[in-house]
Amino acid sequence: MSSTFSPEASLNGASSIAGEAATAGAVKVQGHQRQGRVFSPLRFLVGKEGILFLLALVALWQVVSGLHFRGGYLFPSPLVTAQALQKSLPELLKGTVSSFLILIPGLLLAIALGIFWGLLVGTTPFLSRMFSPFARFASPVPPTIYVPYAIALLPTFQTAAGFVVFIGAFWPVFLNTVAGASSLQQRYRDSARILGLGRVEYLVRIVFPAALPHIFSGISVGLVFAFILLTVAELFGANAGLGRFIQLYADYAEYPRMVAGILYTGVVVLIVTEIVEQIKRRALFWVK
């Protein structure tokens, strides 16, 4: 049953999965690692390091933007940027909607097909032998280089960008699903065989949930890829969207708005990633 995909083929090879560590002994270690000794004068900082670092960055930004040097206009102060953000908010929201109309269909299709095909390829030696040479060739191609061709090939910008988003998210989801499906532990396979599960039931009730930890790391990577590709595509030829917003104000040399757009996009990606993280936590509650 083993697939010929190597774990290295996974774009997210480093993410060894919590599910694997689920065997009894390995479970209880985590909680204790936080209690390391802290140097006492700095104890009040513990737990606030992240927010303090962000504040320090803003302070640094404030200082740099206050200096007078050539090209200083490229560094609008935090206040000016915040005002620009406030002014641009309606435009940015509209851009977000436009971007999401491309992102979500492409991403969902990539997830659905990546899981479906990954489960089949990961459990069927014939399909694995057939598809893995192609996957090995096609998956490492940086999807950004498809952008101009997709725009030329497909009738509208939306379909072209959606297609590129799909390609970018498909491979990580697919490769991780294959890795998860083909590494299904023998005991679960044996139990399923003894219970006499049919092919579909086996895939849906056993292989799919067992591969879920892998699948979610594929989705996390795919999501980031999708955002990158979407904004790159929008820089090329959109008439709306987040990437377009930034390109537009760069062209007009309106750097406060542009910086505001970058920060806003960061927040949007963070929110979406966090939503996926929550879904993952709920779906994988059984992994200890």
Binding site: R187, Y188, D190, S191, R193, I194, L195, G196, W286, V287
Partner: peptide, 28 residues
């Protein structure tokens, strides 16, 4: 081949961890 006539209990607890105990048993 495997058959429901011959139940197996393995050393490494082979209940499916994504199903509750009840679900494991109702599936069987």
């Amino acid at each position: 081949g495997p058959s429901l006539e011959r139940g197996v209990v393995f050393q490494d607890y082979s209940l499916f961890p994504w199903m509750s105990l009840l679900q494991n048993i109702t599936l069987a």
